[in-house]
Amino acid sequence: MRIILLGPPGAGKGTQSERIVARFGIPQLSTGDMLRAAVAAGTPVGLEAKAVMEAGGLVSDAIVVGIVADRIEEPDAKRGFILDGFPRTVEQAKALDAMLAEKGIALSTVVELKVDEDALVGRIANRAAETAAKGLPVRKDDTPEVFRSRLEAYRAQTAPLSEYYAKAGKLETVDGMQQIDTVTGSLMGILERHAETAGA
């Protein structure tokens, strides 16, 4: 089962990914982790990424897709995977589709956690206040101002993916504002259906 989880920062993708990993035994693939692993392993695409990063450049979509392509060939990803943080743009989604098609595999589904952005900002503000009240340092990206800018970046770059995958007939949505366990229940209902179809 090959899944993409969509949703803005703070929507709960990390928590839900952990539960999907536990339930289906498929790895959660984070592009950041994969990039670091490829660089450390000195793979051809990892060396290419290292050269770009050392020169202060941004790793291209082609390099990231190459790293994903290598990673999904590993034994633990044979039964499927969850993509986390990729694709971020429609261009990346198209490149991912082309790469998967070359391998003769397809995405099972794309699930978007739908959330109320104002409520999310409120959650972050509360979390920052609670952390500060305990005398603990507040993460830089846990301030409402920084969080709002992250949401704006998501809206501009990543939100168009919803329409892209909806047109492809791949998109399903879950209300991410429900209780965490309720979100998990809704999500698992969708994924169990796809697992049965895939014969997993």
Rank of each mutant, 00 (worst) to 15 (best):
1 M>E: 05
2 R>T: 09
5 L>T: 06
5 L>R: 09
9 P>Q: 14
10 G>T: 07
13 K>W: 12
13 K>C: 01
20 I>H: 13
21 V>N: 04
22 A>F: 09
22 A>R: 14
25 G>K: 06
26 I>V: 12
26 I>W: 09
27 P>D: 08
27 P>Y: 02
27 P>S: 05
29 L>V: 10
30 S>N: 11
32 G>E: 02
34 M>Q: 08
35 L>N: 04
35 L>H: 09
36 R>C: 03
36 R>K: 15
38 A>W: 10
39 V>T: 11
39 V>Q: 09
42 G>N: 02
42 G>I: 12
42 G>S: 07
46 G>E: 06
46 G>C: 02
47 L>H: 10
47 L>D: 15
47 L>T: 12
47 L>I: 12
48 E>S: 12
48 E>H: 15
48 E>K: 13
49 A>W: 03
49 A>E: 00
50 K>M: 10
50 K>T: 05
51 A>L: 06
52 V>N: 07
54 E>Q: 13
56 G>T: 07
58 L>T: 14
59 V>S: 03
59 V>F: 03
61 D>H: 05
61 D>N: 06
61 D>F: 02
61 D>I: 10
62 A>P: 03
63 I>G: 02
63 I>D: 07
65 V>M: 01
67 I>Y: 12
67 I>F: 02
70 D>T: 01
72 I>E: 08
73 E>C: 09
74 E>D: 08
77 A>K: 02
77 A>R: 02
77 A>Y: 04
78 K>E: 15
79 R>Q: 13
81 F>T: 03
81 F>Y: 14
81 F>M: 02
83 L>A: 01
86 F>K: 05
88 R>D: 05
94 K>F: 12
95 A>R: 03
95 A>D: 06
97 D>E: 15
99 M>H: 02
100 L>E: 01
100 L>A: 02
101 A>R: 14
104 G>T: 08
104 G>N: 00
105 I>V: 15
105 I>H: 08
106 A>S: 15
106 A>C: 07
111 V>Q: 00
113 L>P: 13
113 L>S: 01
113 L>N: 00
115 V>A: 01
115 V>K: 00
116 D>H: 05
117 E>Y: 08
120 L>I: 09
121 V>Y: 05
121 V>W: 10
121 V>C: 13
123 R>C: 12
124 I>N: 06
127 R>K: 11
127 R>N: 03
129 A>M: 05
131 T>V: 13
131 T>C: 06
134 K>T: 12
136 L>F: 14
137 P>H: 09
138 V>T: 10
139 R>K: 04
140 K>C: 06
140 K>L: 12
143 T>M: 05
144 P>A: 06
144 P>Y: 03
146 V>C: 11
146 V>A: 15
147 F>G: 00
149 S>R: 14
150 R>L: 10
150 R>W: 09
150 R>K: 14
152 E>F: 07
152 E>M: 09
152 E>R: 14
153 A>T: 15
157 Q>M: 15
157 Q>Y: 07
158 T>I: 13
158 T>A: 13
162 S>T: 13
167 K>S: 07
168 A>T: 10
168 A>Q: 15
170 K>D: 04
170 K>H: 10
172 E>G: 00
173 T>D: 01
174 V>C: 00
176 G>D: 02
176 G>S: 04
180 I>W: 04
182 T>R: 10
183 V>R: 00
185 G>W: 09
187 L>T: 00
187 L>S: 02
192 E>C: 08
193 R>N: 04
195 A>Y: 08
195 A>I: 14
198 A>K: 14
199 G>N: 11
199 G>P: 00
